[in-house]
Amino acid sequence: MTERLVKCPLCKSGHFLNYQEIKDFAVSKEVFLLNKCADCQLIFTNPRPTEDAIGPYYDFPDYYSHQTQAKSLTHWIYNQVKKKNLREKLSLIESLTQEKTLLDYGCGAGDLIQIAQNHGWKVSGIEPNPGARQIANQKTKNRVKESIKELKKNKEYSIITLFHVLEHIHELRKTVKKILTHLNSEGYLIIAVPNPESWDAKKYGSLWAGWDVPRHLYHFNQHSIQQFQQIFNLNLVDQKPMKFDSYYVSLLSEGYIEEKASMIKRYLNAVISGYQSNKLAKTQNNYSSNIYIFQKK
């Protein structure tokens, strides 16, 4: 079942145009239409599967974020880099506040909240996927809920993170507003999203793995992030790159270009593309994925 949007999911403008058709290479092989808002520049899938109908689109072996065991060389490399990224994420949140309370929205298998909990943080997670939620609860002694609605209304956190999660949320405005009710007045909202204006996105075009339709419902550029902070009354206090993403997305994109290409060729091309993307991103912060750090005004 699909739904057609008549307004931009971010700014509610009715002024948007067809942008591009993108194929779901990972699961369905269906083609989805992207629209681009003329006002806030958000790119969004329209029409899109409903929240109740999108589950099967996540059902494929290479959806790594909920996996714990390496099943291929790519998966093993992904897990090694994930461990490094977890240390960097922990270092980031610990640099921002002395009050160690963390909510990880879309926590997957609970890796971030587990490592934070081991370093003295009081943690909570939100994860709708039942399999991932079960794993996360085993790691964190049942600190993960299915929905944010299950949190106590007066529960607040000094850090709320959404690492590659915002682009998956159907009720975008409603959910962000709800999340912000749980952020304390001095706290930080940390969001990481892919960047459709990165060099690797432009290189691969419709074959860019960062589109990841229909799982990725939205795509934020620098302008739409600025609009995001205005709409939700936030201050963007810092921005950081996720440099590994250019290599990983390039590797997946290389597979879409030539499915029968050798893994050596894919890895070599991905390393070259990832390096080039990061090199050219330095001037305007147009990395393959960016981390945005907000505070309430």
Rank of each mutant, 00 (worst) to 15 (best):
I169L: 02
L5N: 02
S289R: 10
I115M: 11
K7P: 00
Q117S: 03
C37P: 01
L180V: 14
A192D: 02
G255Y: 02
I179G: 01
G125P: 05
I148P: 07
H119V: 02
K178Q: 11
K145A: 08
C40Q: 04
T97C: 04
K145M: 06
E258V: 03
Y63Q: 15
S250T: 01
Q41D: 15
D238W: 13
W211K: 09
H223M: 14
E167W: 09
L252C: 04
S288G: 12
N195C: 05
E88C: 13
C37R: 01
T45R: 08
N233A: 11
F32E: 05
N221Q: 12
S253K: 03
K145H: 06
Q284R: 11
T97S: 04
H170K: 06
D238F: 13
I160G: 01
K145Q: 10
D104P: 03
G110L: 06
K174Y: 07
V249R: 00
E167N: 12
K240S: 02
Q80W: 13
Y105S: 02
D52N: 07
D52V: 08
L207P: 03
Y63N: 14
F294C: 14
C107M: 03
I148C: 10
G187F: 10
I115C: 02
L166T: 05
W76I: 04
A109K: 04
E186Y: 01
S185V: 15
R4M: 14
I191N: 01
R173H: 09
Q134A: 13
K139R: 13
Q227L: 05
Q114V: 01
S277F: 14
N233Q: 14
L112D: 07
F232I: 06
S288L: 09
G125I: 01
T283M: 11
Y188N: 00
I148R: 09
E51M: 10
D59A: 09
N154M: 03
N286I: 04
S158Y: 03
V237Q: 13
I113L: 15
M1V: 14
E171C: 05
Q227K: 14
H75F: 10
E259M: 13
G106F: 03
H219S: 12
K240E: 06
L251F: 15
P194W: 10
Q229T: 15
Y78S: 11
E167R: 06
L217S: 10
G210F: 08
G14A: 01
S198A: 15
L17W: 00
L96F: 03
D111S: 07
L251G: 02
A38M: 10
Q98K: 13
Y105Q: 10
I43C: 12
R48S: 04
D238C: 13
S65W: 14
L236V: 15
G55V: 08
W199T: 10
N195R: 07
I93L: 00
D212H: 06
P214Q: 08
Q227N: 14
Q284W: 07
L102G: 04
V165Q: 07
Q114I: 03
I160V: 08
D104W: 00
S91D: 15
K71L: 12
S250L: 01
S91A: 15
N35S: 09
L90A: 12
